[in-house]
Design a protein around this nucleic acid. Sequence first.
DNA 1: TCGGATCTGGAGGCTAAAAT
DNA 2: ATTTTAGCCTCCAGATCCGA
Length: 200
Amino acid sequence: MIKISGLTYIDQQERLVTTDIDIAARLRQIRTARGLSQRALARRVGVPNSTISLIESGRSNPTIGALKRILDGIPVGLAEFFAFEPEAPKRYFFAAHELREIGKGRISYRQIGESGTARALQMLAEVYQPGADTGKVPLSHQGEEVGLVLSGRLEVTVDGQRKHLGPGDAYAFESHLPHRFRNPGSEPCHVVSACTPPTF
DNA sequence: TCGGATCTGGAGGCTAAAAT
DNA sequence: ATTTTAGCCTCCAGATCCGA
């Protein structure tokens, strides 16, 4: 079992487990607040309604990919989903250990600053362990993103173009273009990235 | 008819035991 | 010590049931 933060950890099968966030209740609350039925949301994101039903009943612990796909249909970003409660006091400074983890497994995405719908920018401190890969299915979402490699090697594929980046190298592209990140090296790759609007 | 829940089987990953 | 294999577990998708 891998402990990522006080809120979220990854179990041995790389499933997302939260210690004090009820994914089931939160998903149901957000979905109903948007006036969506389980079936309507299921049709929108292309999953069977049983998947949503199982998650909302707490009998299924979704993978980060499945959860993100469902949230995309609402739409709600992962960061917003795991956001602090709205009544939380405004904060401007964050210790390293307070950065919210929204990644999983061999990929760490630690969010810089608080999250929420009012924010226009999402900035992440990313760590890709050796061999880490965002997946064969390319990512694609609204917005625009940039990133700077601090250490290690990062293979970035954007709209069919592939490039190996090292320390000091950077990328910038429109997020709707299919993209993929992979660490082909033997050491962890540290990246700082920004996305606006915060759609990841 | 719609919304939510349940059942079943396939697929993939993890673990432990067995084999090398 | 390392690799292979079998069994187990869980997610996910499709079909179906039940109640409003």
